[in-house]
Each structure stands twice: as structure tokens, then as C-alpha cells.
Design a protein around this nucleic acid. Structure first.
Lengths: 133, 133
DNA sequence: ATGCACCCTGTAGTCACTACAGGGTCAAGG
DNA sequence: CCTTGACCCTGTAGTGACTACAGGGTGCAT
């Protein structure tokens, strides 16, 4: 399968597939006589894994680690669990930040009477002093 | 005030202050005889505005727009409101994504019995086929 | 033989900084 | 007077995870 069909099968951009190869996430595939990349089912599996990991918000580095662990099937699952839990903690921190941020924004927006900028509550909320000179 | 005290007063890194100047968010200040940047209260106000905006998650481009609007005090507040509402919508979309993501992660992690990798539910959840060859 | 979709490499751009390298300035202490 | 150390300067390159070309080659159908 060519890079185009692999990309389509995994909802990935062609450039991204080449980039995964360059940074070592995806092994270099065989080449056709015309120098086209030719992928097999193992590549499809690996790229699907990568994309699913990215969709779950794992970094490329974490996915690199997860792939190495996944290849070593007799190993204990503990390290996988550790990576996943660390990531969940990270996501939960971000979630808390965003929740606070959204409520601050809602409050600021709610106060805007949409008059002139000189008494705009949104601008005021951003300004350090209530009414700058 | 020197760049160091301005940075400290606004909880900003010195490099970041210089960067805001380079990209035109902060006007170039006067210089001392030894070529040090010398800031006044107007710079402090403007940088505080920028930092507060960033803390609320506005992009630098949005802050540039907000600053231009804030400078034009007779103008209607409508554009400010539009920017803020667009940003809130963006934050809420992100929040929804992260919420879904966190629950997916919790589910995956909850299923891990921490045995060997070969029957790790986390790896399985990432793999496209239940049990790759 | 020509058009077109697809592929190749390599480089530069995105965003909002951050991290140096390699210097200059300034005030205090010896 | 000299040195030490904290601060400042410019300029460039790096971060993460791609994205967007430029400038060319390949493969297939008409």
C-alpha cells in the first residue's frame, strides 16, 4: 500500500506519516522501483496505534515508550500503567485549569453592557487598575 | 524601572518581555546611557494587560486586537465582546474534548490488571485489533 | 504525448515562548 | 583601582507536533 492509502486508512496526512518515519516512530518501509514507500499490515497496525494514542492526548515521546513496551510482550504491564496514569493526571490538571478559565471568561462577558470601550467591563477586567489613565 | 523589575512586577520572564517588544505588543522603551531598557508606568499597565489576557487564554493576536480596541476609547464595545465570546466558545470546545478524553483514559486505566504486556488492556485499547499478531 | 493524481526530498513556517552564547554595565567590597 | 557578581544587551536556535510549500519525479489513462 502506498503512503496515500495508508494515510487515508488512518485519517493521517501524508506529510505526518513521513514525519513519523523521520522521528523514528514508524520504521522505514520498503520502496518500489520508482522510490515510492510501500507499506504492509504491520505498518498499518503501528500507525493506528500511534494515532489512537495521539487522539488520547499522549505525547509522541509517551507513544514511543508505549510502543517499546508493547513490543516486549512478556514484560510487566506496570510501566504502561504508570505512563497512562501520569497522563491522566496531566489531563485532569488541564481540565481544572480550563474550567476555572471558562468561568472567569463567562463572568467577564456577562458584565459587558456593550456600550463604548471606555466603560467596557471586559477591557476593565483585563486592566490592572480599574480605570487606566 | 529596568526590565528585571518590570518582569518581576508582572510575573514575566525577562526574555518574554523582550519578545513582546520584538513582536510589537509592547512599545520600545527609552534607553539608559548604558543601553538598558527603561520602562514607565504605562509599560507596566500594558504588560499587565497582556499577561492577564494570556492567563485567560487569549492568543497574542487576540490581545493585539484587544489592545488596539482598548486604545480607542470612544469605539463601541461590540468587537471586544465578539473576541471574548469567540474565545469562550473555543475554550468550551476544548473543555468538552478534554472531558471526553479524561473519561476514556479513566476507563482504559481501570481495566488494567497489571499483568504482563501481552494481556494489558491499555495496550489493547490503543491497538486497532484486539490482539495484534 | 499529454494531462493529472500521486509520490519524492528538503526547507521553512506555525505558536508562544525558552535557552543559550558571547558579550557589555553597574554597584559594592577589598 | 580592581574584581566579583548581578544584571543587562543582541542574536540565534530550540521546543512539540506537525503543516506548507518549492521543485521535481512516477504512473496510469486518454
Amino acid at each position: 500500500m502506498t503512503i496515500g492509502s495508508l494515510a487515508e486508512a488512518t485519517q493521517t496526512r501524508v506529510e505526518t506519516v513521513r514525519w513519523y518515519e523521520k522521528v523514528g516512530l514508524l520504521p522505514p518501509p520498503a520502496r518500489s522501483s520508482g522510490n515510492y514507500r510501500l507499506y504492509g499490515p504491520e505498518h498499518l497496525r503501528r500507525l493506528s496505534f500511534i494515532r489512537r494514542g495521539r487522539a488520547l492526548g499522549f505525547t509522541v515521546e509517551q507513544i514511543r515508550d508505549l510502543l517499546a513496551l508493547a513490543d516486549d510482550r512478556d514484560r510487566s504491564c506496570g510501566e504502561v500503567d504508570t505512563i497512562a496514569r501520569a497522563h491522566l493526571a496531566h489531563v485532569e490538571r488541564k481540565l481544572a485549569d480550563l474550567t476555572r478559565l471558562a468561568s472567569e471568561l463567562r463572568e467577564v462577558i456577562g458584565q459587558c453592557g456593550c456600550g463604548s470601550v471606555s466603560d467596557c467591563r471586559i477591557i476593565e477586567a483585563l486592566s490592572p487598575l480599574g480605570e487606566p489613565a
